[in-house]
C-alpha cells in the first residue's frame, strides 16, 4: 500500500535510495515531461538550491518505489517565491515562521488516475496541522486551482496568472485547516490515514533554519 513518508535532514540517511529515486523522477516529470528546460541536469537528477538541510519531503512510497512527492521550505529563508517569482505576488508575499513554501509536487504518470494525489494532498494538510504550520505558498499551473478547490483546499491568489514556459501559472497561498484535511480524506475514502514518521524527527518549527547555500 502507498504510504506517505516524512523525510528531513535528520532521517534522510534512512531514505538514501528513495531520495535518489525522487530526484530522478523530478527530472523525468518536470524536465522531460513538462518541458521546464532550465531545470535540465546532465546527470538526470533535478536538484536545486533549496534541496538542503531545511527542506522537508513528503514522499509517496509503495513497496520501496517512489510514486509521488512534494517539498516544504521555510519562507523566512530566501525561497523560490521570494527569489525567483516575486513579481507574481502583486498582492504581497506572505512570510512567517509558520508559513512554508510548497514546491516540486508530482505524481508519477501511471498513478495519476488513482488516489495518490489525494494521499499526498491529505498528507500535506495533516503534516502541517501536526507541526503547527498555518499556511503554504506555491507557484503552480492554473489547472491546479480547481483540483485543489475540489478537494477542499482554501486557496487565495497572490497575483494574476503569468505565463511561465508557455503555461499560465499563479502564485497562491493555501490555508491549512482540519476542514480541508477532512474533505480530501472523505473524497478519497482515506480512513485511518497516517503519515510514516521516524521518532528522531524533531518538530520543524523548533529547528533553527540554516541559511541556504
Amino acid at each position: 500500500m502507498t504510504q506517505i513518508h516524512v523525510i528531513t535532514a535528520e532521517n534522510q540517511h534512512s531514505y538514501k535510495e528513495s531520495l535518489e529515486e525522487y530526484f530522478r523522477l523530478r527530472h523525468n516529470v518536470f524536465v522531460d515531461e513538462r518541458g521546464w528546460r532550465n531545470l535540465h541536469q546532465p546527470d538526470g537528477r533535478e536538484v536545486d538550491a533549496y534541496d538542503n538541510q531545511n527542506a522537508v519531503y513528503l514522499l509517496a512510497i509503495d513497496q520501496d518505489r517512489v510514486v509521488g512527492g512534494q517539498r516544504l521550505y521555510p519562507t523566512l529563508l530566501p525561497h523560490m517565491l521570494s527569489e525567483v517569482f516575486g513579481h507574481m505576488a502583486q498582492r504581497g508575499l506572505p512570510r512567517a515562521h509558520t508559513i512554508y513554501e510548497w514546491t516540486r509536487y508530482f505524481v508519477v504518470k501511471e498513478r495519476r488516475m488513482g488516489r495518490t494525489d489525494c494521499r499526498l494532498l491529505a498528507a500535506i494538510q495533516q503534516f502541517c496541522l501536526e507541526e503547527g504550520v498555518t499556511e503554504l505558498t506555491a507557484v503552480v499551473e492554473m489547472w491546479w486551482l480547481p483540483r485543489w478547490q475540489q478537494v477542499g483546499f482554501q486557496v487565495r491568489p497572490l497575483g494574476l496568472p503569468t505565463i511561465i514556459e508557455g503555461q499560465p501559472c499563479i502564485a497562491a497561498s493555501i490555508k491549512i485547516s482540519q476542514e480541508s484535511l477532512d474533505q480530501v480524506r472523505g473524497l478519497a475514502g482515506l480512513r485511518n490515514f497516517s503519515l510514516v514518521r521516524h521518532e528522531d524527527v524533531s518538530p520543524i518549527l523548533d529547528r533553527v533554519p540554516h541559511v541556504a547555500a
Binding site: M142, L145, P146, Q149, Q150, P157, L160, P161, T162, I170
Partner: peptide, 16 residues
C-alpha cells in the same frame, strides 16, 4: 485574459 482566467475559475468554484 489573465484576469478573466482567474475570475472565471473562482466563479466556477463558488457556483460548484
Amino acid at each position: 485574459k489573465p484576469a478573466l482566467h482567474l475570475m472565471a475559475m473562482y466563479a466556477f468554484e463558488r457556483a460548484r
